[in-house]
Nucleic acid binder design. Structure first.
Lengths: 205, 205
DNA sequence: CTAGACTTCAAACGATTGTTTGAGAGTTTT
DNA sequence: AAAACTCTCAAACAATCGTTTGAAGTCTAG
């Protein structure tokens, strides 16, 4: 950790991501973060303004890419002649699963995401909904088309639960080591299959 | 909150449960807890010794009953002529779901549980494994019998993921309001069915 | 080379944290 | 009625929290 080739800002983000994953947002202090990042304590407030804004930047750094990947995958899935529920789910899951299996901080971030879900933090929820709400909305539309038997309200809370359960599951995937003799690619593909089947069962009537 | 008919100890436990659910273990201070419970600040250390031990008692109060219910349900399920995977899952899920739909603090506790899963807290994990590990072990044996195609290692991490995802999902159920015209009992039964199908998909090969 | 902007630094700010103290009230036991 | 025990209380403890300050350092543009 705290690779000195990176800039102060990046080192702070990396250390914060790791510590937020391990101890939570309230549980990880700025002194622990700056110490792990090998930067001065005041650097956080200089570069980010406050701890809350640092938290937001930790999310933004990964979510911009993650949600772009999800939208691209969704577009491709919907371009198929007869897209299935499983295709929409794959578009949602695979980019996140890739992140969770990344060794360069991505796996820590997925655990941060899981925490955010569990936290139900008002300020954070608003930030996420403001910045990435449109992605969830596009997915919701696609899901609604696949699950016409569900009412709007019912669909929404089911998606919320499924997204939460998936996030939690993926947070754990980063920790799990694959079976020996199984390639990283194989492992990822099979994990994605499981999660998709898992989620489909939760969504279908 | 803080019903003065209850003892100091019970009021502290109730307030702590609620605040831990809403702000996390690190996020909720003892002053917030004692203030909500309408007791003196020093009462926590007098009755529980420390904040960590208070956290443990919050768990113990609910988990003793929850896990006893799970064990009893498991025994009944295994007494059937040909128990299925779904029966074992039901024994695990239904007592917890009942707790999550309870209005008297039970729903707050399930959210506390979800936090504990997301936290990955070492001290807490040890406490839970020390006190309730035997319950999970009995379920693991039952699951292993239902899923002989899975290796021991693979079964274990799958159970971990499924338990986590279920815990998260149930934490959300406490918040969801049932459809109008649907009785509490109906709602619970259908929710349990969904979760069981959901979990079965994650476990089966 | 120097002026000015950007970044880092040690030190301190007031507020809040978990915990301890010792006095006092209330209850039970002797 | 005295002694012993249980519980509550306000006050204080050192430690740590997020944040701010102003000086020192580093870099770049003129």
């Amino acid at each position: 950790m705290a690779d000195l080739r990176f800039s102060t800002k990046q080192r702070i983000l990396g250390a914060a991501e790791d510590l937020f994953a391990r101890r939570g947002f309230a549980g990880a202090s700025l002194r622990q973060v700056t110490s792990a990042a090998k930067v001065n304590l005041a650097a956080v407030n200089y570069h980010f303004g406050s701890k809350d804004r640092l938290i937001e930047e930790v999310f933004r750094r990964r979510l911009d890419e993650l949600n772009a990947g999800r939208l691209k995958a969704l577009k491709q899935a919907l371009a198929k002649p007869e897209p299935k529920l499983e295709d929409v789910l794959a578009a949602f899951i695979k980019p996140a699963l890739e992140l969770s299996l990344d060794r360069e901080g991505g796996s820590a971030f997925v655990r941060v995401l899981a925490r955010a879900y569990a936290e139900h933090n008002e300020r954070l929820r608003k930030f996420l909904s403001d910045n990435y709400g449109h992605v969830l909305k596009e997915f919701a539309v696609a899901f609604a088309k696949q699950l016409p038997q569900l009412g709007k309200e019912e669909l929404y809370w089911r998606l919320d639960i499924v997204a939460g359960a998936l996030t939690y599951a993926m947070a754990d995937f980063g920790v799990i080591k694959r079976r020996s003799g199984q390639s990283e690619r194989e492992f990822r593909e099979r994990a994605a299959e499981h999660l998709i089947r898992f989620a489909a069962a939760g969504l279908r009537e």
